[in-house]
Amino acid sequence: MKTNRLINSIKKSALLEREEQRVELGFGTQLTGLQGRLVNPDGSFNAKRVNVSFWAWADIFHRLTLLSWPRFFVVVFLIYFVVNCLFSLLYMLIGVENLQGIHGTGVSDKFWGAFFFSAQTLTTVGYGHVSPAGLMASALSSVESLVGVLGFAIATGLVYSRFSRPVPKILFSQNSIFAPYLDINAWMFRMINESPNELVDVNVSVSLSRLETLPSGQRTRKYYPLKLERNQVNFFPMHWTLVHPLTEESPLYGVTEEGLRDSDTEILVYIRATEETFLQPVHARYSYRYEEITWGAKFRPMFDGAKVDGIVRVDVQKIHEFDKVSLN
């Protein structure tokens, strides 16, 4: 009995070994009915977590850090306006007569008088022509001053975090292509760093995602690494064309346009690099769906033929341009 138990414990499982060798990017195998992207063109994941806890949803600092600059300033202005309106109503509740210097008689005049006093108190400007009188007004203005100091400390931290967070501005070609390469064919795309900050030690990994039918008839999503001709460069001052040769070992070997469409193929690109100014690691994501792959094409050169002061110039806007050619 003990011998049988020992044999069962050391017996290898073919299914387990196969599962351990399966490539997994983090999307799982169950996304079979979704005819859509896994990674959006802006690099975000095409997935949304629902029913999260309140504290996870209320991570306001993280949300404000990731907002675009226009939206960030709109949110800051709205918060500033709402807080001032709230304190203005509180001043009116305890009586505007407790604010010396407001001479309006109508409700509107009193509200705007209290509003601008609140704005001056919140920002600690305090012009002095309006001042609190009495315990309630003085206590409320003291609380508002504290709220203003803490609020501007948080706003300062947000602005600093937004400026200090390195964001790579890598522009990808709108389409990837199947192109002739040496005496074979290859799948290619290209990219360029638009930011004035240089990137060094750039590493690129590419994976293929597609639907496949198991012997049981069940559809499952599988992932395969695509070996690049070169996946790492030390410097990235110009554009870079990434090449995956279509050899017999390639998961794309012998594919057709119909096959890519039927298998809902998407090619995922992940980039890791070091931002040279602050020596901080950065990363970027992109993907190409099957309809974004052009068959029989060749990228046009991006170098500007005219040299000025001996400097090689690269036309960034040409990154998307290609010519139709015949495959090998």
Rank of each mutant, 00 (worst) to 15 (best):
Ser141Leu: 04
Leu260Tyr: 01
Ile10Leu: 14
Ala186Met: 10
Tyr224Gly: 04
Ser44Asn: 07
Ile7Tyr: 01
Asn231Cys: 00
Thr156Glu: 10
Gln100Tyr: 01
Asn203Tyr: 04
Tyr127Gln: 10
Val206Lys: 01
His129Met: 01
Phe111Cys: 02
Ser195Phe: 03
Lys324Cys: 11
Asp309Thr: 06
Asn197Cys: 06
Ile10His: 14
Ile79Asp: 07
Ser118Ala: 15
Glu198His: 02
Phe303Val: 08
Ala153Thr: 08
Leu90Ile: 09
Val39Glu: 00
Val50Tyr: 09
Thr220Met: 13
Leu146Ala: 11
Ser161Asn: 14
Val50Glu: 04
Phe152Pro: 02
Lys11Cys: 05
Leu25Gln: 03
Ala139Gln: 07
Gly36Ile: 03
Leu86Asn: 08
Arg285Asp: 02
Arg37Lys: 15
Asn84Tyr: 00
Ser205Pro: 06
Arg22Met: 13
Leu64Cys: 14
Leu99Thr: 12
Lys12Leu: 14
Arg221Ile: 08
Asn193Leu: 07
Tyr288Pro: 12
Asp315Asn: 09
Ala133Asn: 06
Met92Tyr: 10
Thr247Val: 09
Phe178Ala: 08
Ile184His: 06
Gly259Thr: 03
Asn8Ile: 14
Pro180Glu: 13
Pro251Trp: 05
Ala58Gln: 03
Asp42Lys: 06
Val314Tyr: 05
Lys318Asp: 07
Ser88Arg: 02
Phe278Ile: 01
Gly126Phe: 12
Cys85Met: 07
Val149Tyr: 07
Lys222Trp: 03
Ser209Asp: 00
Val75Tyr: 08
Ile184Arg: 11
Met188Asp: 04
Tyr290Asn: 00
Ser13Pro: 15
Ser250Gly: 13
Ile293Tyr: 06
Gly43Gln: 04
Asp59Ile: 05
Arg289Tyr: 00
Leu6Tyr: 12
Tyr253Gly: 13
Ile94Ser: 08
Tyr223Phe: 15
Ile271Phe: 00
Arg272Phe: 03
Ser141Thr: 10
Arg210Asn: 11
Arg313Ser: 05
Ser176Glu: 08
Lys318Ser: 06
Ser13Tyr: 13
His103Lys: 07
Val308Arg: 12
Gly254Ile: 08
Val76Asp: 05
Thr274His: 03
Thr241Asp: 04
Phe172Met: 08
Leu182Met: 02
Phe61Ala: 15
Ala133Met: 04
Trp187Pro: 05
Leu66Pro: 08
Thr277Val: 07
Gly217Asn: 11
Ile267Ser: 02
